[in-house]
Nucleic acid binder design. Structure first.
Lengths: 341, 341
DNA sequence: GTGAAAGCGCTAACAA
DNA sequence: TTGTTAGCGCTTTCAC
């Protein structure tokens, strides 16, 4: 509509306020070192003209963009379709917004997109990146690290074994899993099985780890599955066949737990009387609506997002200031008791 | 890491290739009108130096940003947490990526954010906007329209009654609803009820409309609900109390339909023998996993996103070319037969 | 405390 | 076809 009438520039504001461009610039950027009456005059001119700074011009000289890329590698469709990323994005968005940063979303669909993402980051469009690396063998995190853009990872990257100084935020998957299994053990269950997610994802591997830490070596009972309800069903059937006296199941997420519940009902086993079930995530629509409602390990997804953003912004602020912190933030999980265990 | 060694500029590439900056610029932007050997030399210099154009500098002169804002108004938490937006975002992302455009995500949490969004758009950071307006009385769409940024809406905006020339993409909610209800009628059901979503959302209103078009005026049986499983349960209970001989239910989405199924089971009604149930969305994790699996109306969410982006990009290309198309694209829905009807 | 002037890296007339 | 030149709108020394 008003595309033709191009927007007012600093120049225009300066003219209107009867000052120099430099002064307007100072006022617009906080007003330090400008005398009050002038500040006022400039502010008024800005308002009257509806002046908004041109970010491109500003970036050209400051080399800052006040923008952060969020990169989500999405090998599988379902990963993105679950509420997980939505919540995380929300946390990130809130934090970035509060600090006047923009969120540039980059979704990748596989190797073809890697080059594109690397090029984008190398292009210096953004000041930093928030990256979700789901799989152990994903080359993307490495690529990004190489570009040299300040980065914070969501979830422990598979290769983050102390060597490189990665910064990441993760839930306490091990601790949560331990808590879940301990609850089951405390309930007097003696055959506690675990249905894990794909073990090439660190979250799945870490939960399995937590299970192992509690269950004695001789009593390990594990089926690897895929984080889907259908996968949970298949795993539960296998479990029942392999070990009919199983009396407790810790599923690595709520979706699989819902499949477990279904199979148990179909096989006539009562929950929790015959078999106690615990999930992971506390994904409300699933956990609360299942029958019976699911006892599960809650992780605060939105908070994870918020903290990732906060960490990154802090790094960006410190830029040039030397000290690069590095290291991980691991958020606590909480056990939510419902009817299934 | 390599933050200190600032990236090579056009100048550097020109020097290395022994040509002028203008020539490099031409090559970088497609290479039209530059003789082959020169093109080759420039390309090589670009590669050797790892040159990537500075987008800020480019935008400053072209006034294009190759970036599009996606604005999601999110009054309710659950709206964003369902897979809907994730899928839509994916469609949008794919299309934008294919045309070298960036996706800037703006999540709003209420009135406070409106000003911020308006300012951002007015700031000319992006070439256009994709907006999801969920509620009839949402002031955001109007604000955005006023800013004068080319915009495409996702879902029919509540105020789009022919007057303003809005562009939007929507599913054929009315048609899909009609098809659902016709199926039920064709099955010989005589008391077909409808559980609607919040009627201040056009999708809910349009589905109700479709139901109305098929069911005779005297036989209308409607309960307004909220698109959640719990809401579906409450609505179904009310329906059963109000009209015990109800023999079919068309729920405005799958989530509510899952609640309906639960209540029916609890009340000892068989599905579909006693009561047939049809949902809307074909949200796989819900529709396929419910018991019995849900007959539902499928809408292609990802495709909606893709088309929104395509429409916007087309408008942007045509900019200055005069003709502003305007108008709506309504995508067909398909009935997916499963066991519940 | 304020203004003048020099670019930031690029594109787009215009000349050659 | 290629090069020269003039900005795009802003920040930031550096004088005053």
């Amino acid at each position: 509509m008003s595309e033709t009438a191009s927007r007012p520039t600093l120049e225009a504001v300066a003219a209107r306020a009867g000052v120099s461009r430099a002064t307007v610039s100072r006022v617009v950027n906080g007003g330090d070192g400008v005398r009050e009456p002038l500040v006022e005059r400039v502010r008024q001119a800005v308002d009257e003209l509806g002046y908004v700074p041109n970010q491109a011009a500003r970036s050209l000289v400051t080399k800052r963009h006040d923008a952060v890329a969020v990169i989500i590698a999405e090998p599988e469709t379902r990963v993105f379709a679950d509420p997980f990323f939505a919540l995380q994005l929300r946390g990130i968005s809130k934090e970035l917004t509060a600090h006047d940063n923009q969120l540039v979303l980059l979704l990748t669909e596989g190797r073809d997109d890697h080059a594109r993402v690397a090029r984008y980051l190398a292009g210096g469009h953004v000041d930093g990146a928030l990256v979700f690396s789901l799989h152990l063998d994903d080359p993307l995190p490495g690529l990004i690290q190489d570009v040299g853009v300040p980065t914070v990872f969501g979830g422990r990257p598979g290769w983050s074994d102390g060597t490189r100084d990665v910064v990441y935020v993760d839930s306490d998957n091990r601790g949560g899993a331990r808590e879940a299994v301990r609850l089951l053990a405390g309930l007097g269950r003696s055959r506690v099985a675990h249905i894990s997610g794909p073990l090439d994802q660190t979250s799945a591997a870490d939960r399995l780890d937590g299970y192992r830490q509690v269950v004695g070596d001789g009593r390990l009972l594990v089926v690897e599955s895929d984080f889907t309800p259908g996968g949970g069903e298949r795993a539960m059937r296998e479990l029942l066949d392999r070990c009919p006296d199983v009396d407790a199941v810790f599923a690595a997420n709520d979706l699989m737990a819902s499949g477990v519940l279904r199979v148990l009902r179909e096989r006539g086993r009562r929950v929790p009387e015959d078999v106690a079930v615990v999930g992971f995530d506390d994904m409300l629509p699933v956990a609360e609506q299942s029958d019976p409602p699911l006892t599960t390990v809650r992780q605060d997804i939105e908070e994870m997002g918020r903290i990732m953003a906060r960490l990154l912004l802090r790094r960006l602020d410190r830029r040039g200031g030397g000290e690069e912190p590095g290291g991980a933030v691991v958020l606590p999980t909480t056990l939510v008791r419902r009817a299934s265990a």
